[in-house]
Design a protein around this nucleic acid. Structure first.
Length: 862
RNA sequence: GCGGGUGUGGCGGAAUUGGUAGACGCGCUGGACUCAAAAUCCAGUUCUGGCGACAGAGUGUCGGUUCGAGUCCGACCACCCGCACCA
């Protein structure tokens, strides 16, 4: 029995596609409808991982399918080439970030090409290339002119030993990952994008993104977090000298002001800093808070702690009431005004705080049906609807009305005003790193901040850089930052911050439309192709990357670069790849490659030691449970890897990688090949007319074939690749059965067999393109399958004429009856009642009720 | 902590969106072919009881709505993702 040689064939067909330039997209309209399919571009870490294989397989299926459906498809690839890992590699291995990155790109490009992706490689871009980032610098200058970027001070994690700013992931339990030194917080003047100017537009625009997953839209909406409420001004007593006597607080619950029992300010609040100057205990407390780092997760999961200050805040409505003011570690400076008032009865966090510091808990919202005399708060704050009480002029108002009344009174008294607050903060884009796009600005002692003139772009990174020492390498470079002020000519310094790498990924999808243009975007190309029709990537980008790209698109539109409102019309978020974990007796994580089976089938190490099998987890280096796609493709071929990726698990869900699964996929590839090659010699010539007489078995195969076309088409459209795979399995099963069943085939049989096999090859094309090309050629195809049209299902053949209807008694299945499609309800009813199993149960009398759902079910109620 | 999600046989999953739970695949069991193995082919495979026809149970847990619930509602449990300097 001969076998399909994937190695030979995959190389052969990849070369054929390249030679035919099948996947090169036109720059503009070529008369066909356009379809832009894009997967999130990879960070060039050096090798592709299984997540890439899944991502690019999904995108490739869509790209090839849409091409077969007659679309003009743009499907490009590039590299998200700036970022921290290149600098880490430089520190560890002494290799220059550029060299490391470019070598990684070369290696990964070769791996991706080996997957047989239908990509227009002529459009490849790398964000670390000056011909890419020069346009980004121009955009920055335009944003600056348009007031979309500005400088302000903000806090960063500072490693006092390495003299460097740390990313949140580099802060581990309050310490720097390399130095182990306790992390401090520092204030730094940095560049920000005014994404908050677009908060309403970004929020309201979500409604137009009907082809985005609901969950992503919800996450973005919550992230933007528009909330209506009030700013309340508390007069202060006991504040440090020289500090204003007013504390500004934002609240969404002005209706609960009468339940207030304290105020709290953020450790980063200016008032806290002023207090710290006079009070060592305050300074110590602030320093302790700073060690948590800047991540919201760390701050909010830490134990709630507060420090009572000498300050008192006067209640805006109650003359003789004043509240203690705390500094509290859970109050965020970045949200609202960096200060809150606490109403323990109606906010859980405030309640926890009040219990800890023994503050009064006074309920002011009465739940419906509760008795005001007995209602009390125990361990749970009451956050629901109700009526105001214990609240003077607010008494008996609903929560909603009380809010409005409280705001009106605040305004009247000059103690506050209605306000809309967003959770969204402006986007800090400054990074104190080498391997990023230089921010094109100059600091002049006389002129202040001066933009780099456009004619001087790009501002290129220097090559001669020392990454081994502490601090920002660009700032330490002896000459790079020395420059004359473009405005006054005096000696000045370049900005040594580089952009957040989210900057590059915020516009790359648009650059693909005209990747070699001298300007960022050729207008005709970008207006033709945008928005991306289908964007595909991991759910982990649900908020940040996708929100920044949306902001960028709106900002670029405002600056006249393009016409699109939104970058991605359709979004699909795929799940992660998981694998079992293995541990040796010493607790060391073992790679799946190192696991053997002993004669009893138990897992052991290569040297025979027992292995503990752990639960399946996301593939990661730390758990050592990764499987290298290169090895899989080498052993089984790209088609097998792609097929397994698409089988079983729905693409939005996490998938389980197993050795048995990949072997099953491999066997199916072989089976398809046998199915076609063994039948090929017996078939009529391609394009022969259908013979007059088709026997019953052949007709049934035709029905199966056309049903498969309809089902697979629907499944691909809906991203249900696992179902498409199952349907193709079923067609293969039907074909096997047909071939075994017919010893001598009529002309009709042979014709139907050809139709079915051709369909099989076409339907497989987007998923396993190399094998499908080979099958296609074996069946007499003279052109590339990659250029062929998608098959059409004949509607007359996809509908069954006979239906099996389920018969239930009291909802419990008791049998089935076969009926012609669309039989009248009475016929179904009679047939159901005639069933012996039903008749037996009806011995005691007639049914109380019979429910008939046509073509589905008959339920007899007794 | 806050926000978002997931949960169905031994395993991955399917279920026309309220109508025959377990399609399809993996694994396992038995058989055919073979000196033997691999490959391939055939049959079986939710669980419990029964030789059997069959009966009962069953979609994370508990409760509800309905002629009928994996699907809808309420409460809970477990696990996963994100949290603004990883990308």
């Amino acid at each position: 029995m001969s076998r399909y040689n994937f190695k030979e064939n995959e190389a052969k067909w990849q070369a054929a596609w390249e030679q035919a330039a099948c996947f090169n997209a036109p720059n503009t309209d070529d008369g066909r409808p356009k379809y832009y399919v894009l997967e999130m571009f990879p960070y060039p870490s050096g090798r592709i991982h299984m997540g890439h294989v899944r991502n690019y397989t999904i995108g490739d299926v869509i790209a090839r399918y849409k091409a077969a459906r007659g679309f003009s498809v743009l499907h490009p690839m590039g590299w998200d080439a700036f970022g921290l890992p290149a600098e880490n590699a430089a520190k560890l291995k002494g290799v220059h970030p550029r060299t490391w990155t470019l070598e990684n790109i070369a290696a990964m490009r070769a791996q991706l090409k080996g997957m047989g992706l239908a990509i227009d490689w002529q459009r490849e871009i790398a964000t670390c290339h000056p011909d890419y980032y020069r346009h980004e610098q121009k955009m920055f200058l335009d944003f600056l002119a348009a007031g979309l970027v500005y400088r302000k001070e903000s806090w960063v994690n500072w490693d006092p030993v390495d003299q460097t700013v740390l990313a949140n992931e580099q802060v581990i339990e309050g310490r720097g990952w390399r130095s182990g030194a306790p992390v401090e917080q520092r204030k730094l003047a940095q560049w920000f994008c005014r994404i908050t100017d677009f908060a309403d537009e970004l929020l309201d625009g979500l409604d137009s993104l009907s082809r985005w997953p609901e969950k992503v839209r919800v996450m973005q909406a919550k992230w933007i977090g528009r909330s209506a409420g009030a700013r309340v001004f508390f007069s202060l007593r006991g504040q440090p000298r020289g500090v204003a006597d007013r504390l500004e607080v934002f609240t969404t619950r002005p209706d609960t002001l009468f339940g207030a029992s304290f105020c709290a300010i953020s450790p980063n609040h200016p008032l806290a800093a002023a207090l710290a100057k006079e009070d060592a205990a305050v300074a110590d407390f602030i320093a302790a808070c700073a060690r948590l780092g800047t991540s919201q997760e760390a701050i909010e999961t830490a134990e709630k702690q507060g420090l009572r200050t000498a300050m008192r805040a006067r209640h805006p409505f109650v003359e003789d009431m004043d509240l203690p003011v705390y500094i509290a570690n859970f109050v965020l400076m970045d949200y609202g005004t960096g200060a809150i008032f606490g109403c323990p009865a109606h906010d859980q966090r405030d309640l926890d705080f009040a219990r800890k510091y023994d503050l009064p808990v006074r309920p002011v919202v009465l739940p419906p049906d509760a008795d005001p005399k007995t209602f009390a708060i125990a361990d749970e704050a009451y956050v629901g609807e109700g009526t105001a009480y214990n609240s003077a002029f607010l008494d008996r108002l609903s929560v909603e009305d009380a809010k409005a009344a409280a705001i009106a009174r605040l305004q009247e008294l000059g103690h506050g005003e209605g306000a809309t607050q967003y959770r969204l903060r402006d986007w800090g884009v400054s990074r104190q790193r080498y391997w990023g796009c230089p921010i094109p600005a100059i600091h002049c002692g006389d002129c202040g901040i001066v933009p780099v003139p456009e004619s001087d772009l790009p501002v290129e990174l220097p090559d001669d850089v020392d990454l081994s020492g502490p601090g920002n390498p660009l700032a330490r470079h002896p000459t790079w930052s020395l420059v004359d002020c473009p405005r006054c000519g005096a000696a000045a310094r370049r900005e040594t911050d580089t952009f957040d790498t989210f900057f590059e990924s915020s516009w790359y999808f648009a650059r693909f439309c005209s990747p070699r243009a001298a300007i960022a975007f050729e207008r005709a190309a970008v207006d033709h192709w945008l928005p991306v029709d289908q964007y595909i990537g991991g759910i982990e980008h649900a908020v940040l990357h996708l929100l920044y790209a949306r902001f960028f698109t709106k900002a670029l539109k405002q600056c006249g670069y393009l016409s699109a409102n939104e970058p991605f019309a359709g979004l699909f978020t795929q799940g992660m790849i998981c694998h079992e974990t293995y541990c040796d007796p010493d607790g060391v994580w073992l790679s799946p490659d190192d696991i053997r089976q002993d004669p009893g089938g138990e897992p052991v190490t290569a040297d025979g030691r027992p292995v503990r099998v752990g639960r399946s987890e996301k593939m990661s280096k730390s758990k050592n449970n990764t499987v290298d796609p290169a090895r899989i493709i080498e052993t089984y071929g790209a088609d097998t890897a792609r097929w397994f990726m698409l089988s079983d698990s729905p693409p939005e869900r996490d998938m389980e990688w197993t050795a048995a699964g990949i072997e099953g996929a491999f066997r199916f590839m072989q089976r398809l090949w046998r199915l076609v090659t063994e039948a090929a010699a017996d078939l009529p010539a391609p394009g022969s007319p259908i013979p007059g007489d088709i026997a019953a078995e052949a007709l049934s195969l035709r029905r199966a074939t056309h049903k498969t076309i309809a089902a697979v088409t629907e499944d691909i459209e809906a991203f249900r690749f696992n179902r498409a795979v199952a349907r193709i399995h079923e067609l293969a099963n039907a074909l096997s059965e047909f071939r075994t069943g017919s010893t001598s085939m009529t002309a009709g049989d042979r014709w139907v067999l050809r139709e079915s096999l051709e369909t099989l090859a076409r339907l497989c094309g987007p998923m396993v393109p190399h094998l499908a090309e080979e099958l296609w050629r074996c069946l007499g195809g003279t052109r590339l399958l990659a250029g062929e049209a998608w098959p059409q299902a004949d509607a007359a053949l996809t509908v069954d004429t006979a239906i099996t209807v389920a018969v239930q008694v009291n909802g419990k299945l008791r049998g089935t009856v076969d009926l012609p499609r669309n039989s009248p309800d009475d016929t179904a009813r009679e047939a159901a009642l005639a069933l012996p199993a039903v008749a037996r149960l009806l011995a005691d009398g007639p049914p109380r009720k019979v429910i008939v759902v046509q073509n589905r079910i008959v339920n007899v109620v007794i």
